[in-house]
Design a protein around this nucleic acid. Structure first.
Lengths: 340, 340
DNA sequence: GAAGAGTACGAAAACGATTTCGTAATTAAA
DNA sequence: TTTAATTACGAAATCGTTTTCGTACTCTTC
C-alpha cells in the first residue's frame, strides 16, 4: 500500500478507472451519488493524482517559471511576492531560475524550458539586445511569456514596465533644481531596456536645462561587484564640484554610499544622490536616501496576470490587437541625500 | 512537425524507440557508431525529452521545493541563492512556496507535495511546535527534507542552523558591557526554534551577569506589520532607562529605527540596539546598526547538499548514524548603535 | 563444431493519469 | 409499441518516456 493511485482507488470502489477519473473531475457523465462515494473514499485514503501522469496526458504543467538576473535584491524579491500571490490563487507552481546577469545562462535556461516543463515564463532579461534568438524560439514553440522591468523590445511579447523615462527625467530635474553642476548617471550596462530608458530621461532633462555636455558623466559600472566599486571610486576621485548622481539601480547607490564613507565625501554637501530603489531602509540611511521607488509587488502581479491570460488564450484565435504593454508609475521620495 | 519526440526521432533514424532511448542514455548495449548517429540527429532536430514522461516513468522529478515564510527578506533571498547554486550544478529545478508565516499555509503546501511533485524539500518552518503531523507524513512517504534556520526539533530530519544560543549570549553580553540597565528581546513569536534559542542565550547572559529580572523584557511583536509597530511603540513609551535591545530578526530592528526616528529617541544615547540581520546597508544606517550576521548563502548551500545527499541515499539501508545537524557560526559586527 | 559468452538491437510492458468511444439500461417522444 | 434520446458507466487508446525481456548474430573456447 505504498502509494495510492487511481487504479487502487477504482478497485476499492468497484468502479472502473475511467469512472473514477470522471467523478473526480466532476463530469456530467457521473451521477451525484457515485461522485460522492468517490470523493469520500479519495479523501479518506488521501488520494492525490500523480502530477506527472496528469501533465503528460493533458500537456499542461500548472507551473510557470520566473527567470531573473538575481534574487538577493529587494526589487526582485518583491516582484516574486507579487507573482506568487497570483500563482497561489490559481494553484500554479512557481519555478525560479537565476541568471546572475549572465546572458548565456539566460539563454540556456530559456532553451531548456522549450521542453514543455512550464506553461509560461516571466522574464526580466539579462540578455543583450543583439541576442534574442531564444525568445523567438519561445514564440515559435508557442510558449507564452511576459517581460517585466527589463524587456527586449525587439520581441513580440507582453511587457510590464515602469515609467522609466519620466522617472529619470524627474529625478534629474530634481538634481538640477538642487543646484548640482555636474551630473552622473550610474548604469550597469547599456544593454538593459529599463536602465536605458532611465538614461534617456536623464539626458533629456539635462538637454532641456541646457547643461553643458562636458558636465555630464555616464558611468557604466557593470555587474561585477569588485569592478564596479573600483569604477565608481575612480570616478569620484577627484570629485567633480557640485556633483549630482542619478543611480539607475539600488546596488550602485549603496556602493556609492560605502565609498563616500570610506573616502570621506559628505552627502549631500559635496555630492547629492538619488537612486531607483526599493530599500525598506532608504529613510534610515545616513543620510536618508532620495529614491524612485517602483511598485515592485504590482509589477509581479500584473506580469503574472498577463501571463495567465495568454496561457488561457493559447491556441485560440487572437483578435488583432496591440500587445499588452502595462506601464506602472514609480514614486519619487525626496530625502536628505539631495538636500541643498 | 509540432513537437519532436523520441518516436519521430527513432523513425527518422530507422531505429527502434528503445535503441534511441538507450543511445541517448549512453547505454553499454549500444555501439559507439549508433550512439553518435543518434546524438547527432537529436541535436540537429533539437530533441528534448518530455520531462513529465520521464518523471512518470523514473519516478523522480529532478525538482526540489523550498518552503519559506517570506521572500522579501535579505536572509531568505540569500539562502535561496545558496540553494540555487547547488541545484543548478546538479541540474535540479527549484520550486518556491511562500507561507507568509501562516502555519496552515505551510501544512497545505507540504501536504500537496506528498503527491511526488518534488524529490525533496527544504523547509524553514512557519509551523508551531504543537503541529508537526505534516512533517511526519513526509517521513512516512519517504520524501527527504531538511530544515534550515527554523527547525522543528521534534521531527527526525537533518537541520542546518546557526549558533543562535551563543550569538544571543554574545550579543547580550555586549549590551551589558555597554552599560545597559534594562534589556529587551524582540521576538516574532515563541514558536520558532531559531528565535527561541536566541532568547535562551539572551536570558542566560542576563542571568550570568545577575541582571534583575524586573529589568528584563520579552516583547513578542508578532508577524503582522501594523500590530508589531504598535507593540514596539507602546513598549518604548515611556522609555526604560539605559535600554538595550536585542532584536531577533532584522525586520523588528528596522521598525524600531523607524519608531525611534518618529518619536525622537536617540540611538545609541538613549537606546542601544543590536540585531540579527543580513542587511547590506547595516553599516550605512543612521546610526550604523550592530548586527549578528548569519552566513545565509552557506546555510542554503549546506542545506541543499544535505538534501541531495538524502535524495541520493533514498531507499538504501542507512547505517545507524546521528542525524546530520550542521551548525554554522554567525558573525558579530559592533557598530554605532551599541556605542557607549 | 557444439556450447557458451558477448554484442547490438527490437517488441512490448510499464508509469498513472485523461479521454474517446462504445454500449447497456432507462426514459421520452411519436 | 416502436424509435429516439438520455443516463451512467467501462474498455481501451493515449501521452512520451524507460526498462525488461527476448533474440538474432558473432565470437570464443575446448
Amino acid at each position: 500500500m505504498e502509494n495510492m493511485n487511481i487504479k487502487k482507488l477504482a478497485k476499492e470502489l468497484n468502479l472502473s478507472v475511467s469512472t473514477v477519473s470522471k467523478a473526480l473531475h466532476d463530469s456530467y457523465e457521473i451521477k451525484a451519488e457515485t461522485k460522492e462515494k468517490v470523493l469520500a473514499l479519495a479523501k479518506q485514503l488521501n488520494y492525490q493524482p500523480n502530477p506527472f501522469a496528469s501533465s503528460l496526458r493533458r500537456n499542461s504543467s500548472k507551473t510557470i517559471a520566473v527567470v531573473i538576473p538575481e534574487i538577493a535584491h529587494n526589487f526582485f524579491s518583491l516582484v516574486i511576492n507579487g507573482i506568487e500571490s497570483i500563482a497561489e490563487e490559481l494553484k500554479y507552481h512557481v519555478l525560479i531560475y537565476i541568471t546572475h546577469e549572465i546572458p548565456e545562462k539566460e539563454e540556456q535556461v530559456i532553451r531548456h524550458l522549450l521542453n514543455g516543463r512550464v506553461d509560461g515564463i516571466l522574464i526580466s532579461s539579462s540578455g543583450t539586445s543583439n541576442n534574442n534568438a531564444h525568445y523567438h524560439e519561445l514564440v515559435q514553440k508557442g510558449i507564452p511569456f511576459v517581460f517585466f522591468d527589463r524587456a527586449n523590445f525587439d520581441v513580440d511579447a507582453p511587457r510590464v514596465t515602469t515609467d522609466d523615462y519620466q522617472a529619470g527625467f524627474q529625478a534629474t530635474e530634481h538634481l538640477i533644481k538642487s543646484q548640482c553642476k555636474h551630473f552622473a548617471f550610474l548604469s550597469l550596462s547599456n544593454q538593459m531596456s529599463a536602465i536605458n530608458h532611465r538614461k534617456d530621461g536623464f539626458l533629456a532633462a539635462l538637454k532641456q536645462y541646457q547643461i553643458e555636455p562636458s558636465h555630464v558623466h555616464i558611468i557604466e559600472a557593470g555587474t561585477d561587484e569588485t569592478l564596479s566599486f573600483q569604477i565608481i571610486r575612480d570616478f569620484l576621485q577627484p570629485l567633480p564640484v557640485s556633483l549630482g548622481i542619478f543611480s539607475s539601480v539600488e546596488k550602485l547607490a549603496i556602493q556609492t554610499y560605502h565609498i563616500c564613507k570610506e573616502i570621506n565625501i559628505k552627502i549631500p554637501k559635496q555630492l547629492k544622490i538619488i537612486s531607483f530603489s526599493n530599500l525598506p531602509t532608504a529613510a534610515l540611511l545616513n543620510p536618508a536616501l532620495s529614491t524612485l521607488t517602483q511598485p515592485a509587488f504590482s509589477i509581479g502581479k500584473e506580469a503574472a496576470l498577463l501571463l495567465f491570460q495568454s496561457i488561457k488564450n493559447k491556441g485560440k484565435i487572437q483578435p488583432i490587437t496591440t500587445l499588452p504593454n502595462v506601464v506602472l508609475k514609480s514614486t519619487i521620495f525626496i530625502r536628505e541625500s539631495t538636500k541643498m
